[in-house]
Simulated assay, not measured.
Amino acid sequence: MSEDARRAEIAANLDRVRERVAAACAAAGRAAEEVRVIAVTKQYPASDVRVLAGLGVRDVGENRDQEAAPKAAECRDLDLTWHFVGQLQTNKVRSVVRYAHVVHSVDRPRLVTELGRRVRAEGRALTCLVQVNLDPESARGVIGPRGGADCADVPALAEAIEAEEGLSLGGVMAVAPRDGDPLKAFDRLNAVADDIRGRYPHATVISAGMSGDLEAAVERGATHLRIGTALLGDRGLIVG
């Protein structure tokens, strides 16, 4: 596919995503400006990031450090906010804090401690979201296959983030379970978000919703949507 054709494809996809978001916001009685789209560019090249930036997208998400770090370096001349949205192992924290502005997947105390230690060493600041496990079948205290802390453990993690120099609490994030009603899942997340905002009024972010369930997320209060396939196509088909 030529560069011009790829740009036209992404532009058309972005228009459709923005239309979906606007319609979902209207249906929910919300202003479209309340919801930000994070373009999840995993398995896509830096050239696609540049196209998105040229179309006005400023928020870019990645879920694997080995791909995100070089991509962020290649696009360092762009005025972008980089979101790390995947499960994060502590041995990757040193690299991630060098480019990420927001980490969505904070789900355990050890990760909070390591993020704080590494971000201070880099002389940077980092916004953190507590990832909430919305799978009702998961046993309490066990991080699910897609990550996330038990709802009951979220306040303690939020407190730990706020207490860690160099980190700031942005709010919460979750992935709806693959099976089940996303509205019910995002209801649970909204309840957790309400509790966290009651404790920390500045922690207003609700990162929820992807290409297939963004309407449900908007209806239930999402402020940030993590959109990949609807913007860039089926993963792995366009690389390099």
Rank of each mutant, 00 (worst) to 15 (best):
E33F: 03
E162P: 10
A22N: 02
A217S: 11
R188H: 07
A100P: 08
S105T: 05
E33W: 01
E165S: 13
A193W: 07
A8L: 07
I238A: 15
E164I: 09
G144V: 02
G56Q: 14
T127P: 04
E33T: 09
V102F: 05
V17F: 04
P201E: 11
T81H: 10
G180D: 07
R36A: 06
V57Y: 02
E34G: 05
L78F: 07
R108Y: 04
R7F: 12
C151T: 10
R20I: 03
Q43E: 10
E164R: 12
L167Q: 09
V21H: 03
H224F: 09
L14Q: 06
I143M: 10
V17L: 04
G240L: 12
R20V: 07
I10D: 00
E114F: 04
R117Y: 06
R226K: 15
K71L: 03
D234I: 15
A139S: 14
M1R: 14
P177H: 11
R197E: 12
D187E: 14
R188V: 05
S2E: 12
E219A: 13
V142C: 11
D135H: 06
L214A: 03
A191E: 15
H104P: 02
R98K: 13
S168V: 15
R117P: 05
Q87L: 08
G29S: 00
G29Q: 06
A208R: 01
I196V: 15
A185C: 11
E3L: 13
E67Y: 01
A73W: 07
D179A: 13
L189V: 09
R16L: 12
T113R: 14
N91E: 06
P109G: 09
G171D: 08
L225E: 07
A68T: 05
D15C: 13
T127K: 15
H224P: 03
G198L: 07
A163K: 14
D195W: 07
M1A: 10
R226D: 08
P155A: 14
A31M: 08
Q89P: 01
A208Y: 02
N190A: 15
Q66W: 10
D15P: 01
V60E: 00
R18Q: 12
